[in-house]
Design a protein around this nucleic acid. Structure first.
Length: 998
RNA sequence: ACCCGGGUGGUGGAACUGGUAGACACGCAGGACUUAAAAUCCUGUUCCCCGCAACGGGAGUGACGGUUCAAUUCCGUUCCCGGGUACCA
């Protein structure tokens, strides 16, 4: 009986399905005291390309951990679903006219099959799809809760809008500064006098989901607004189209109100430092001060407010810089400077986002002619404008201290502004020094103080004079929540007389209507705007007034912000999750996914969780307890090298198409940058092609050739050796191609491969796995050749889960060999099952228990690659001992189950029919570790002196246990080394050796 | 530029709190079995030196320096690679 993995895996996969082996129950009021464990994968977007070998890496890791926890006696929730709203399906719809719902469904089917092939233990009964109305009903519902909430800064939590209204009625907004407009101040009496429209407008400035007229990242090519994290280097993340700023009415999430809690929450979760840093940087908290400066020759109402993190440097201020967009600019510019400022504003306007980013280094600006006054020494400070100051951060104005800030220094030098030195020799006159340790000079009341300490004094003084205050700033902006797209959640919002009103919860979901065209609507609106009959809601349908629907849809992160909650209670149609069930499952104990979601999804999801916690829907405010980031599996691309004569189409019409000429790598390396050599090689190889000879003759001396590196499908290459015959037959235009091989021979049509030494070597490079690079490896293919168990173990064996690495199929043989060896411990090809009931020897127990210890430790710390190695060692050692004893092999099988579940099930069943009572290895419990077999390790310990083994002296530890020191000291050889002096220390090295330190 | 992470054989990678560096696997070389192939098994495999061999010697974890009896591990400087951020005052 051989290890027939295809049969075994098929058999068990269908058995698992039939028996609902992985369905997990929600124990409510249940006597079961099983502790829960929630293992979650970042659910995939079902793209048309299907899964490649890189996708399952995280899923395999999470599956191993889930199965391991299950064996350890946990009730494990391990679900899977699909993030099925999104741009690619819509782009595809625009191109092909196929409805996104159809293509998405098709892709999901494909993903299902591919995932099932790998033998995952997902509970598919809990599958969620974000594009399913029964799911997005609740996405809309949660949006409405955000809409109906505001952030109470005093209590540091979200509350209902109704509570805000009663506050306004009693005390106005005194003490509740408006986050959307900090100058807004009103009393209770004012509030009573405002009309309904004003009430709405004011409340909108407080809502957690709000509508605002704001500058957005508009992408013309995609016809939509993009979030900040969807814009990379001034172009769209998807497709690399240019992005510009545009003013539009948009929905936003007031995530900035949660900035501090998002920051604090990081302390309580187990994320990698890198991940925490990324989020911290994104939030970008900075502490400093806001300082108000008077402006010369202006009414006292006209003030200049700057934000600085270094109030201690206020005596070093030599000029002010305003963001060009600031309204203040126009009001303070003097008549003499009007023209210069206007010219500069014109210039700023003309520059695209891209240009700005591209030339960060160039220094530009203009003088407004106005001066502000230093409140401490009365110095007059010129006010400039420049695009290096951003309108959106702080107050949009800075005080420039050239001796301490490099950008200010550059600006001062460029415009010849004199520089005041307040840090003595710390400033060398050639560059700014941002130190905080210098002793201040030329700084009035702060003279002689160390800057770090002067900071507080400066703020105290400013507060005393009522011209400044402590201020915390965040880099993070509120999150844009509108997309001018079709394939997303419609907003449950209807505008009545221009006022956005929530749709009644009873009529949710607002279903996405069918459209015939996916193109954008009028004036930058989404495709939904084209469906008049959907947009217009007659009064009878909606209650009191008729209205117009919101035509934007929600962004991709809407559905994924709360999906982990839906898995807990996926079929509930009265709540997005039942509170008691949410309390049972609680936080996700282990979340596995890629780093690419570090700031987007993870931050939004954390915010939503906090809001839902504040509103008392759930009992925890951090969604993910532990996060593991799996690395990317890159593709290993292969290149062939083609020499092509330069012929224009006109010339080509006169002659026959030339045959393709490919040269092997060593020739490519030789001729790479030498046009003459390329040409000569073309001529040499072309001796075997009539068409090519014709061309050479036609062009004569004028012939020019170029060399191209071309991606070749990795399936046509073995390592770096091109399979020339298969390659030639892969495309009709290559059937007559010529190949220059490593040994200098030319392969031309009709020639036989006379000699195995003829090799065509390809170039290799590690790149992202993608269809266009022909380096995609499909897991189905690997599973078909080696089996799912081999595939699972090999992906783990490749290296640490967190690490990115290129896929290389070559090493898979080793893992496959291991599984066959493993199989042979249990089953003989001819005799069948060969497991005996003999009592294992201590040596055999030692192997088992060493392995239990190792596997357990490695699995716990996600070191799956070393765990696989440990299995290999155990199998080798047991093989050497010819151990076929049940006492060893049955526990070993259970250990292997999380890693290779199919083979484990099969062998367990074999043991089962022979004797056992348990039905499935999945219900087995994890083998117990017996320490006694571990301690009796090697009895003979080598002795080293100062870490180096200098003698052949071995000491028996069992005998020496009572007094190791004495025995060692009495040893003649050691005595000689010690030379009469006492040893400094005697230590055991990892239980392997005794080290005497002299 | 700044903030993280990482540089170990021909390759992927082990070495968890400093303690025999290179586990395990691939590849390669040699051998056994076989008419042959596949499969399987065995031996060797960091580099250099001495030797017939056993044994032995030296160097070695990007580079230089430091702490330590002992450093891949800790500290400093520097180079290279990967990721993140990008005029954030």
């Amino acid at each position: 009986m051989e290890y027939n993995f295809r049969e075994i895996e098929k058999k068990w996969q269908s058995k698992w399905k039939e028996n609902n082996a992985y369905i997990v129950s929600n124990p409510i009021n249940e006597e079961v005291a099983k502790p829960k464990f929630y293992v979650l994968d970042m659910f995939p977007y079902p793209s048309g390309a299907g899964l490649h070998v890189g996708h399952p890496l995280g899923y395999i890791a999470s599956d191993i951990y889930s199965r391991y926890k299950r064996l350890k006696g946990f009730n494990v929730l391990h679900p899977m679903g699909f993030d099925s709203f999104g741009l690619p399906a819509e782009q595809y719809a625009i191109e092909t006219g196929q409805h996104p719902a159809d293509t998405t469904e098709k892709n999901i089917q494909r993903y299902h099959e591919q995932l099932d092939n790998i033998g995952f233990s997902f509970d598919w009964s809990r599958e969620v799809k974000t594009s399913d109305p029964s799911y997005y009903k609740w996405t809309q519902y949660i949006f409405l809760q955000l809409f109906d909430s505001w952030y109470n800064r005093k209590k540091q939590k979200a509350e209902r809008i109704s509570q805000l209204v009663s506050i306004f009625q009693q005390e106005g907004n005194e003490g509740y500064p408006c986050p959307g407009n900090n100058r807004l101040k009103f009393t209770a009496a004012d509030w009573k006098n405002y009309d309904e429209k004003s009430h709405y407008d004011i409340l909108m400035h407080y809502r957690l989901a709000y509508l605002a007229f704001g500058e957005v990242n508009w992408c013309e090519a995609l016809g939509t607004v993009l979030a900040n994290d969807e814009v990379v280097n001034g172009v769209s993340e998807r497709g690399g189209h240019p992005v510009e700023k545009k003013k539009l009415h948009q929905w936003y999430l007031r995530i900035t109100e949660y900035a501090d809690r998002l920051l604090q929450g990081l302390e309580q979760v187990d994320f990698s430092d890198a991940m925490k840093d990324m989020q911290k940087n994104w939030i970008g908290k900075s502490q400093g001060a806001e300082i108000t400066f008077a402006i010369k020759n202006q009414p006292s109402s006209e003030k200049l407010v700057v934000y600085t993190t270094r109030p201690d440097t206020i005596f070093g201020v030599d000029f002010m810089v305003l963001a060009p967009e600031l309204a203040l600019v126009e009001r303070i510019t003097t008549p003499e400077q009007k023209e210069a400022v206007a010219t500069y504003l014109e210039y700023v306007k003309s520059r695209s986002e891209r240009e700005r980013l591209a030339e960060v280094k160039s220094i530009t600006g203009a003088f407004t002619g106005a001066y502000s006054v230093n409140p401490f020494d009365g110095r007059e400070i010129p006010i400039w404008i420049s695009e290096y100051v951003l309108a959106g951060y702080g107050t949009g104005a800075i005080m420039a201290v050239p001796c301490g800030d490099q950008r200010d220094y550059g600006f001062a030098k460029h415009f010849n502004i004199p520089i005041t030195n307040i840090i003595g020799e710390h400033y060398n006159g050639e560059e700014a020094n941002p130190t905080k340790e210098a002793v201040l000079q030329n700084s009035g009341f702060m003279n002689g103080m160390v800057m770090r300490e002067a900071m507080n004094l400066a703020i105290d003084k400013l507060e005393e004079m009522e011209i400044g205050k402590r201020q915390v700033n965040y880099r993070m902006r509120d999150a844009g929540f509108s997309r001018q797209r079709y394939w997303g959640e419609p907003f449950p919002i209807i505008y009545q007389h221009g006022i956005p009103m929530p749709v009644a919860e009873s009529v949710l979901p607002v279903e996405l209507p069918h459209v015939d065209h996916y193109g954008p609507g009028p004036e930058g609106e989404g495709p939904l705007a084209n469906i008049k009959e959907w947009v217009t809601v007659p009064s009878e349908k909606h209650g009191e007034a008729s209205g117009m629907r919101e035509t934007n849809t929600m962004p991709g992160y809407a559905g994924s912000s709360w999906y982990f909650l839906r898995y807990m209670d996926p079929h509930n149609d009265t709540a997005f999750v039942d509170r008691s069930i949410a309390d049972y499952w609680g936080q996700v104990d282990l979340y596995i996914g890629g780093t690419e979601h570090a700031v987007g999804h993870l931050l939004y999801s954390r915010m939503w969780t906090k809001v839902l916690y504040d509103l008392d829907y759930i009992g925890f405010d951090e969604p993910y307890k532990k996060l593991v980031n799996q690395g990317m599996i890159q593709g290993s691309s292969r290149f062939i090298f083609r020499i092509t004569p330069n012929i224009n189409p006109e010339q080509l019409s006169k002659i026959a198409e030339p045959h393709a000429v490919f040269v092997t790598k060593s020739y490519r390396d030789k001729i790479q940058n030498d046009p003459n050599a390329i040409k000569e090689l073309f001529i040499k190889v072309s001796a075997f092609s009539k068409n090519n000879l014709d061309i050479i003759e036609l062009f004569g001396e004028d012939l020019e050739c170029r060399l191209n590196d071309i991606h070749v499908d990795v399936s046509l290459v073995d390592g770096v050796d091109l399979n020339v015959e298969t390659f030639r037959n892969s495309r009709t235009d290559y059937t007559l191609a010529l190949f220059l091989m490593e040994d200098g021979k030319v392969i031309y049509p009709g020639i036989e491969f006379d000699d195995v030494n003829d090799k065509y070597i390809c170039g290799a490079e590690v790149e992202k796995m993608s269809k266009s690079k022909y380096n995609v490896v499909n897991p189905d293919e690997i599973v078909n050749r080696f089996g799912a168990d081999t595939f699972r173990m090999y992906e783990m064996f490749l290296g640490p889960v967190e690490q990115s690495k290129p896929w290389d199929t070559k090493g898979i043989e080793g893992v496959h060999r291991f599984l066959r060896k493993f199989w042979r411990l249990y089953v003989d090809e001819h005799k069948g099952l060969i497991v005996t009931n003999d009592e294992p020897t201590p040596a055999e127990f030692k192997i088992l228990h060493k392995t239990i210890k190792k596997i357990e430790e490695d699995t716990e710390r996600f070191s799956f690659n070393t765990a696989v190695s440990s299995f290999m060692i155990a199998v080798n050692e047991l093989g050497d001992l010819k151990c076929h004893k049940r006492g060893i092999l049955e526990p070993l099988l259970i250990l292997l189950t999380p890693y290779a579940p199919h083979i484990a099930e099969e062998l367990y069943q074999h043991l089962n029919t022979a004797q056992l009572t348990k039905s499935s290895v999945l219900d087995a419990s994890y083998p117990v570790l017996e320490q006694k077999y571990l301690v009796e390790s090697s009895k003979e310990y080598p002795v080293s002196v100062n870490g180096k083994v200098r003698t052949n002296l071995n000491i028996s530890l069992d005998a020496a246990q009572a007094n190791v020191e004495e025995i060692i000291l009495e040893n003649e050889i050691v005595k000689k080394w010690l030379d009469g002096k006492p040893p400094k220390k005697i230590i055991y090295v990892k239980g392997k050796m005794i080290n005497v330190v002299i």
